[in-house]
Each structure stands twice: as C-alpha cells, then as structure tokens.
Simulated assay, not measured.
Amino acid sequence: MRLTGKWNKQTYQLVRKLGSGATGTVYLANSARGQVAIKLAENNMAIASEVNVLKHFSKVQGQVLGPSLLDVDDMVTITGTYPFYVMEYLKGTELIYYMQKRGPEWVGILIVQLLDDLKRLHQAGWVFGDLKPDNLLVVGPPARIRWIDVGGTTMMGRSIKEYTEFFDRGYWGLGTRKAEPAYDLFAIVMVMINCYYPRRFEKQMDKPILQLKKAIYSKEALYPYREVMVKALQSKFEDAEAMRKAMIQAMSRGVSGHSFPEKKTPRPLRHQVKKRKGKKTSNLVEIFLFISFLLLVYILYLFGQMM
C-alpha cells in the first residue's frame, strides 16, 4: 500500500505491520529517508498527544529518548481521513531475548542506563507509564536501550492512561495509578523480573509483595539487586537517580562475594580442609573476574556514550 500525506505530500510505501495498540497501528515503511515507522490512528487527539510527547523527548537535555519524529500528516481515503505520524525506525533486539543471549551480567548495566533516561524524562515533567520489555529495544553497539512506544507517556500528576497489568503497581495493590516517578520505578523492577520469568505470572496471594519477593529471591542473577528491587516495589526511592545510585552500589558490592546467598554445607573433615580452601580461593577468583568483566563492560559503555 502506498500512502501520501495530504499536507506535506511525502510518500511512503507500507511494508508490513509492526504492532498495534490502544491508539493505533504501527507499520514499517520505505521512504525517501529510508526505512521509517508509521503510526496510523482514527483518533486525532491520541495522535496529537503522542506527537507532543515525541517533540518533548527531542528536547530532554538535548538527548532523544524515544524515536525521532520525522513527519505528521493526514491520509485521505474513500472512507475518511486518518491522522498519522512518521518516526525513526529503530533496529535492535528485544530486551528479554538480548538478556537471554548475552547473560545476567547485563541486567545491572542496562537497568542503570534506563534509570538515567527516566531521570531526564521525569525532570521534564513526564512519566513513561506503560514501561515493559515490549516497548524497549537494545540497539548498538555500544548497547543502549531505546523506547519504541510512547503511547502511555503521561504528564506528571495525572492518571496513567495506558498500562499493562503485570507492570502496574495498581494491579499488585502496591500503589495508585498516579503519574509519578515511583510508578515507573516499580515497573523497572517488574521488567527485571520479566527478563527471568518471560511467561510472566498472575497475582495469586493476598500479600502480593511476598509473591514478588519470592520471585526475586528465587533467581540467583537477581539476588545482588534484591534490596534495591524490594525498596522500589514499595515506592521507597525518591527518584530515578536515587535508584540508579543504589543499583551501581549493588553492582560494586558484588566484589566482596556476599551478594549471593550462602549455602549451608556439612562441616568438612580435616583431610578435606586443604581441598576446600583451594576451592574457596578458586571461587573468589571467579567472582572477582566476573565483577571485573562487569565493570569493564560498563566503563566501555560509558566511553561509547561520550564518543
């Protein structure tokens, strides 16, 4: 299907459907600029709201947080006129697949980066709202999270207009749906959990906080961040920057080797002591090398951001 804007006369060749939501359908298209993403809708107000958000994203401390806005126009057909906007087409890997492929050491690195972006968004007066892996892509190198759907973005202080139950603190009975930083920080924790429970799960207990704690403590890769995650679930962080710093501290504490749960083992016999000491030393070396790798990757990421 070929689409030509009524006002700007730009022509786009629709290739395939990328996804759909409450406010419209997104298509991949070819254009004079190359491949782009086009969102078509029936509601002018919904399109106007999202366009406004994308314009604000481009002004957040000079950094584009979501897709770049390229064009806004109307499509005229025999059945009526439909508004659309054109945005940058981001090529990347879905967050959950990226985590499964690259390994657990990337959890902290990517979440720290996402929190830094949220800090800028919140300072500009917006809350992302519908924050979930489906709306996140990892692009690069260097590896960087980009947001691909801003339909749920809401001005601070208003009611969240779009949400997905699993990531919504209201669903879990752990807060309201008021647009505030703590709402997004709760969703960040649920994104981390979803990376290790891809099928998600439903609320099953009278005290859902206990269910979520159990999910966190059951995954060794999440254990270093358990205190940070539980604190965010209970809306105890003042802002995204406070949670970001706590995540960095949790990453660095791993060097001590005390971030993972200690397993109780029988007291060794005397003739086993030397063997156990050698094994303990080997484990400490492995932990040190793992954390060194983690910090090296994060330093390389920061260096890539400055280039």
Rank of each mutant, 00 (worst) to 15 (best):
D184L: 11
A124Q: 08
Y225M: 05
R146H: 13
P141N: 03
Y217N: 03
Y197Q: 02
Q113T: 03
F128R: 06
G157N: 12
G152A: 13
A179T: 03
A143W: 15
P181L: 04
L118N: 04
H122F: 00
D117Y: 15
P198D: 10
D184N: 00
L222E: 03
L174P: 01
V127A: 11
E220M: 15
I188R: 04
A215V: 05
H122L: 08
V191W: 07
K203G: 10
K213M: 08
K203P: 13
G175V: 05
I209H: 13
R120Y: 14
D117L: 15
T154R: 00
A187I: 02
P142Y: 14
R177P: 05
D130L: 02
Y223W: 14
A187H: 00
W172M: 09
F186M: 11
D149P: 02
P142S: 14
I160A: 05
T176K: 14
K178Q: 02
P133N: 06
Y223H: 07
L115E: 11
R146I: 01
L137K: 09
L131I: 00
F167T: 13
S218N: 15
Q211W: 00
W126E: 03
I111R: 14
G125V: 11
K219P: 03
R200T: 00
R177F: 06
R158M: 10
G175S: 06
Y217A: 12
L212M: 13
F166S: 13
P198Q: 09
R199N: 12
P224M: 01
I209V: 11
M192V: 11
K214E: 07
G125E: 05
M192N: 06
L114D: 01
L185Q: 10
V127E: 05
V189E: 02
D134L: 03
G173R: 10
V191A: 01
R200P: 06
K213P: 05
